[in-house]
Amino acid sequence: MGQPHRVGIIGVGFISGQYLTTLANQSSVRIVAIADLDRAKAEEVAAGIEGARALDVAELLADPEVETVLNLTIPGAHAEIALAALDAGKNVYGEKPLAVTLDDGRRIMERADAVGRFVGSAPDTVLGTGIQTARKAIDDGLIGRPLAAVATWVAPGHELWHPNPDFYYQPGGGPVLDMGPYYIHSLLQLLGPVTAVVGLSSRSRDERSIGSGPREGETFPVAVQSHLAGALQHASGAISTVTVSFDAVRTTAAPIEVHGETGSLSVPDPNMFEGESAIFRLGGDAWEALPPSAGYVDSGRGVGLVDFAAGHGRASGAIGLHALEIMTGLLEAAESGTRVEIASTFPTPDLVPLTAAEAWRD
């Protein structure tokens, strides 16, 4: 890996701004090329980054200066772009999920192995102080042997705020593949690999209405399940229950709770990089806040790529594939009414030491 590591971005939609904020002034990563189906948009973004060029997708993939492709396309294009980048000899770091089908996810990882390239996968929120502090508490035995976890995310639907929400309700979308990665990846960080899943799902309605923007009032079809409740059997013996929904209005539940033999742990929002963990100890009488003790401080989307450039690769494609198998397994289990075995696994990534912003940005 060169220093700085040279990155080409494909796709400069809504999420790209957060990545650019993290990466644009990062000393270990240099953005050298930008591509988008909208060439004018690519040119506009490239003009704001010193040394970056606006290219067509094919030109970016062929550019010898690009070491790693940052794949920020829509989920349905993740596999196509990742495979093309690997065939061009590039590493790939992509937005979640790794792919929208398990077959495509496996194909990406097999191709990476065949060509000797690295694949990384968001979400990298798990590398912030929120999830990493919770993981350190578990690793340090503060709640004893972990027995169970509960993860909950509910909302009434992205169409209330997103001006073009259609893709959230097509194959590759839905609450499982859209928001599920934050919760599944966090549970994998906290409790390790999963061996089997079961699930139930529903769809509240077949059509939704856009609530804001120039298309306000326009309706669009729903082709995915909009509510899922599932259970995950971890290799450690712990059992996690997961609820994700585009049908519910609000919840008072903690985003994630982990229960052990000697304590319970409240874990902050896994869609954020920070947040407070709290512990309730066996025999105690109140929740105790835990100060940040691990993770990248003041981090943002793209820190997983910085982590890779530093030689760590904690937000790995192997975890992304395992999470994808879990999520597609939950949907399969809900449809078939059967338990689905999970074949993949991953090596447990190292805990991120508490790393000040000045350190990981330099």
Rank of each mutant, 00 (worst) to 15 (best):
I74G: 06
A122E: 15
P75K: 13
P97V: 10
R111I: 00
P97M: 09
R106V: 08
G89V: 14
E95S: 15
M109I: 04
A85R: 03
T73S: 03
P123I: 03
L127R: 06
N91F: 03
R111W: 00
K90D: 07
V126C: 04
P123V: 05
P97Q: 11
G105T: 02
P123L: 02
P97G: 12
F118C: 05
I131D: 06
A79C: 11
V69I: 14
L83Q: 13
I74S: 10
D104Y: 09
M109G: 06
G130Q: 10
E95P: 00
V126S: 06
K96I: 07
F118T: 14
A122M: 14
D103G: 13
G120I: 10
A79L: 07
R111P: 00
R117C: 02
G89Y: 02
L70E: 03
P75D: 14
D103M: 05
T133E: 08
V115P: 00
K96T: 09
L127T: 12
D124F: 10
T101E: 09
L98P: 04
L102Y: 08
A134S: 15
P123A: 05
E80I: 10
I74M: 09
L127A: 08
L72T: 02
T129K: 04
V115M: 00
V115Q: 00
R107P: 00
T101H: 04
L83Y: 01
I131M: 13
M109L: 15
P123R: 03
G89F: 02
V69A: 11
M109Q: 12
A85G: 15
T101R: 08
D104T: 07
R135I: 03
G120M: 09
R135E: 07
H78P: 04
A79K: 03
